[in-house]
Simulated scan of single mutants.
Amino acid sequence: MHRYPFTRYYVPGPSPWPLVVGTCCNSLCVSLVLWMHRMEAEKLFIGTLLVLVVTAALWWTDVLREGDMGVQTQYVLKSYRDGVGLFIFSEVMFFFSFFWALFHSCLSPSCNIGCEWPPLGIRTLDPLSTALLNTFLLISSGSFCTYVHNTIRMQSYDKWCLVNMGVTIGCGVLFLIGQGGEYYHSPFSIADSVYGSTFYMLTGFHGAHVMVGTTWLIVSFFRMWRGHFSKDRHFGLEACLWYWHFVDVVWLFVWLVAYFWMGGMFSDKFGLSSV
């Protein structure tokens, strides 16, 4: 900042984190492929994942330190907002591909599965049991974190913001517990034809995003506890809440499509045919 007083963007010094993260991502891909081919790569995968997590934490610590130094101008914050927006858009396209595969298999079942959907022999999950509870949890968490967002934009947060953040984190944890219990008692697996593969890929990746979002919420909670946010500086919290709202909306579509439509609920109730 002192070396470039007339620039709009802060130019950081040399950092090892991009090289380490790139190396870890390459190692993760290689070790995961080797693991899928039944080769002994579990230790490499777990070790690389731990190094990646620690490196990401150190990198984010440097970014937060830059914010404390006052070098993150409005132009830098705009680039952060644009980056988070593009990241969420890429996640939308990611889930769109799974929904595309689901509708392709559901609306035009192949003869390999008897031209029926759900395929013969598949006992689908009840959308009005655990899935309904999980939907209630995520939709409720969206209202709690919206309170936090609106409050911090109008004024500095108070204890009720911390309470609402805690409730939001609790909803995320309960969602993951319910999803895990549903997987454990599920009557079909990911190996049960295209139905099992599409269902578990869609809901499983969403569960992974809930796990990431819950971790991000926990970090934001402790940052709020230590007073890192204010009315004029709270983009880290704002980006976290954007991501959590994205997770909420995606689950609503997952519940309606993967449980109701895919499970044959619409066909049973309204006499629709999936062929």
Rank of each mutant, 00 (worst) to 15 (best):
Q72S: 12
Q72G: 04
T73G: 05
T73C: 03
Q74K: 09
Q74F: 00
Y75P: 01
V76Y: 05
L77M: 11
L77P: 00
K78S: 14
S79R: 14
R81Q: 09
R81I: 02
D82A: 11
D82V: 10
D82P: 00
D82E: 10
D82R: 11
G83Q: 05
V84M: 15
G85E: 04
F87V: 00
F87R: 01
F89I: 07
F89E: 04
E91N: 13
V92C: 07
V92Q: 06
F94C: 11
F94M: 14
F95Q: 11
F95S: 10
F95I: 11
F96I: 11
S97D: 08
S97C: 06
F98T: 13
F99V: 04
F99Q: 02
F99T: 05
F99C: 03
A101G: 09
L102D: 05
L102M: 12
F103G: 08
F103W: 15
F103S: 12
H104P: 02
H104V: 14
H104G: 15
H104L: 14
S105Q: 13
C106R: 12
C106E: 11
S108R: 11
S108Q: 15
P109D: 02
C111Y: 10
N112K: 10
N112Q: 09
I113G: 09
G114V: 05
C115R: 14
E116A: 14
E116D: 03
W117H: 07
P118R: 04
L120M: 08
L120Q: 14
I122C: 07
R123Q: 15
R123P: 01
T124E: 11
T124S: 13
L125I: 07
L125R: 01
P127W: 03
P127L: 04
P127G: 06
P127V: 07
L128R: 10
L128I: 09
S129D: 10
T130M: 07
T130C: 08
T130I: 06
T130G: 12
A131Q: 10
A131F: 06
L132F: 10
L133T: 05
N134R: 07
N134F: 00
T135L: 13
F136W: 10
F136G: 13
F136K: 05
L137T: 03
L137W: 01
L137H: 02
L137V: 00
S140Q: 03
S141T: 01
S141A: 10
G142S: 13
S143I: 11
